[in-house]
């Protein structure tokens, strides 16, 4: 809630907004007026993680440390709920107005976040336009996921998959498929040992495109021979993680891309 300054003293929209979380970065970049947002997290400027890297590269980028943020003299700081709590608490102690955002777990959260940022930044009109667009895109024939629809599961670094009540499950279901984590009743990001994945045997295994570029212990699991044998190319879908990481208007793209990829896969299979 914004403080009530009374009619005589209309709250001025903040002019030095700093965002320290990749997701709030992208939402703020979409909603803020030119010049209003002065710094975003360094991840927002990296093309491998951000869909607005070009826009973000025009701004100052921060690494989320309190000292760095305070020197920017922000009048509003946007952070994720799980963004370095120590930094957020310190900033609050120092009297900075920090607003935190929970990760988006469903489509409704995206609209709620857009609306909250719109209000905070005094850009309700821009936010409402984005929300309206989002609602139209998501309102498309929301066919009830068929009980025989293919099951799609994600598998990533360190054998993690995503459980139910997640943005991923919403996207998969909106694209017309069943979601592995939901079928298995997993909660949040869950470790799924390779054995269990093979037994669960989703029809298609979703892997994140950008992660294949990394070599290391964590991503080694994606090269396991058993994984290759059980899920050959025709049972894989490589998706662009940038569209899935944050709940933003780009999430609509994740749904569309998944539909297209699955359709082209089906063509190959025939």
């Amino acid at each position: 809630m914004l403080p009530d300054w009374g009619v005589a003293n209309q709250p001025k929209a903040p002019q030095r907004v700093v965002s320290m979380n990749l997701c709030t970065d992208q939402l703020a970049l979409l909603v803020a007026a030119p010049g209003q947002l002065i710094s975003v997290s360094y991840l927002a400027a990296e093309a491998s993680s951000s869909l607005m890297a070009k826009e973000a590269a025009q701004l100052h980028t921060n690494r989320g440390l309190a000292e760095q943020i305070i020197r920017l003299q922000p009048d509003l700081v946007l952070a994720g709920q799980y963004t370095s709590r120590a930094s957020v608490n310190l900033l609050r102690r120092l009297g900075v107005n920090v607003q935190t955002f929970a990760p988006a777990y469903r489509f409704a959260d995206i609209s709620a976040h857009l609306a909250k940022i719109g209000t905070l930044l005094g850009q309700e009109a821009r936010a409402n336009a984005l929300i309206a667009q989002l609602d139209t895109a998501l309102a498309e024939p929301n066919q009830h996921t068929h009980r025989s629809a293919p099951v799609l599961g994600s598998y990533g670094a360190n054998s993690y998959t995503t459980g139910q009540s997640s943005l991923e499950s919403e996207v998969v279901k909106a694209a017309g498929f069943r979601h592995l984590g939901t079928e298995l009743a997993l909660q949040g990001a869950s470790k799924l040992p390779l054995e269990q994945l093979i037994y669960a045997s989703p029809d298609r295994l979703m892997t994140w495109k950008s992660w294949s570029q990394y070599t290391g212990r964590a991503t080694e699991i994606l090269l396991h021979p058993a994984l290759d044998r059980w899920f050959p190319k025709e049972r894989r879908v490589a998706v662009d993680s940038r569209y899935w990481m944050c709940g933003t208007p780009f999430t609509v793209e994740a749904i569309n891309q998944l539909k297209t990829q699955m359709e082209s896969h089906a063509d190959h299979a025939d």
Partner: peptide, 25 residues
Amino acid sequence: MSSNPFAALEIVFWMLGSLADRSWV
């Protein structure tokens, strides 16, 4: 120092060891 976002989490593996999901490789 690694650019791999998952690298920092690996410290546990290197210090405590595991045989989970290793392969013939």
